[in-house]
């Protein structure tokens, strides 16, 4: 049977598929299952902690006599390259970077009370924490997803 349909199978396999999003890896490989209310709380606390931590890491490094180190951006897969310790100071073991990735999708209209149309927006957020190990390389430590539904009144034309 397979020989009979080789042409159609080949054509189907050649079609460009919509790629699985990178955020799916963070949700599957290192998920944290928390209740929805605690995820929102953790998300808020993580954002505040990230801001405080970034400030704490940034301030001591900007000494007038030291060159400003160039930090490598965190990578979603694998480890960030370890900086050259002789040329510039790198991340210390235990240092963390926290990032929040968020996007909003439009999910359609609802009319909950029969009179007022509301647009449904879904905000999906992933809070990721990267931690530097003994060699100064950052690795993804955790990814905390959070979903929120936002209702916006639609204009009646």
């Amino acid at each position: 049977m397979n020989d009979e349909f080789k042409d159609i199978e080949r054509m189907l396999k050649s079609m460009p598929l919509r790629k699985a999003p990178p955020s799916l890896d963070a949700r599957i490989l290192r998920p944290r299952r928390f209740p929805r209310w605690s995820r929102a709380l953790v998300g808020g606390l993580a954002a505040a902690a990230a801001a405080a931590l970034a400030l704490a890491l940034w301030l001591p490094r900007h000494n007038a006599s030291d060159p400003i180190p160039e930090e490598a951006p965190p990578q979603t897969a694998g480890l960030a390259p370890a900086p050259d310790a002789a040329a510039r100071p790198g991340p210390q073991p235990g240092h963390t970077i926290e990032e929040t990735v968020s996007h909003v999708t439009y999910e359609g209209l609802i009319v909950p009370d029969g009179k007022t149309p509301m647009r449904v927006l879904q905000q999906r957020t992933v809070n990721r924490t990267w931690v530097a190990d003994e060699s100064g390389r950052f690795a993804l430590d955790s990814a905390v997803p959070d979903d929120q539904i936002i209702l916006v009144q639609a204009q009646i034309q």
Binding site: A20, P21, L24, R27, I28, T105, E107, R124, P145
Partner: peptide, 10 residues
């Protein structure tokens, strides 16, 4: 729906 598909896989 891509978002629902992502939810479904998780």
């Amino acid at each position: 729906c891509p978002a629902a598909a992502e939810d479904a896989v998780q």
